[in-house]
């Protein structure tokens, strides 16, 4: 029981960390602000969710777990709200999203070298 518990804790903490770093890479790597929102979305859902889940399993059924759950609920409610606020503000300021066709044109003009 103890072993299974700590395996779950390990697995969720490490997977959550992995997803958080992947989301961070996405924020750095993706081409424009709208696509970067998706990278931030990964860290907010999967990263935060799995890390907090791991901590909750480590803690067991106590009042501290309730705080972890509350943090999770709060992140889950606010993350789409702030993502939508960023997207909406960018869109209404006239910033056009980089669409598929733009990407293809860019890739053909400078052989796809982008950081």
């Amino acid at each position: 029981m103890e072993v299974a518990n700590s395996i779950i804790v390990w697995a969720s903490l490490l997977t959550g960390s992995l997803f958080a770093v992947i989301g961070g890479i996405g924020v750095l790597r993706l081409p424009d602000v709208y696509t970067r929102l998706h990278g931030a979305g990964i860290t907010d859902t999967m990263g935060a969710g799995l890390i907090l889940f791991g901590l909750a399993v480590h803690e067991g059924f106590t009042l501290i777990t309730v705080k972890l759950v509350l943090i999770f609920i709060f992140l889950i409610i606010t993350s789409p709200a702030s993502s939508n606020a960023v997207a909406n503000a960018a869109h209404s300021s006239g910033l056009r999203p980089m669409l598929d066709s733009d990407l293809k044109n860019k890739a053909s003009s400078n052989s796809g070298a982008r950081s």
């Binding site: 709208y34 789409p80 939508n84 869109h91």
Partner: peptide, 28 residues
């Protein structure tokens, strides 16, 4: 609905209008 779209990675709702939602998706 708009929040569920945004919460799902890969799709972000950009603007909510009556009867439709403008959505930016990472992939087709």
């Amino acid at each position: 609905f708009a929040n569920s779209i945004t919460l799902t990675p890969g799709t972000v709702s950009v603007r909510v209008l009556p009867g439709e939602i403008l959505v930016h998706a990472l992939s087709k």
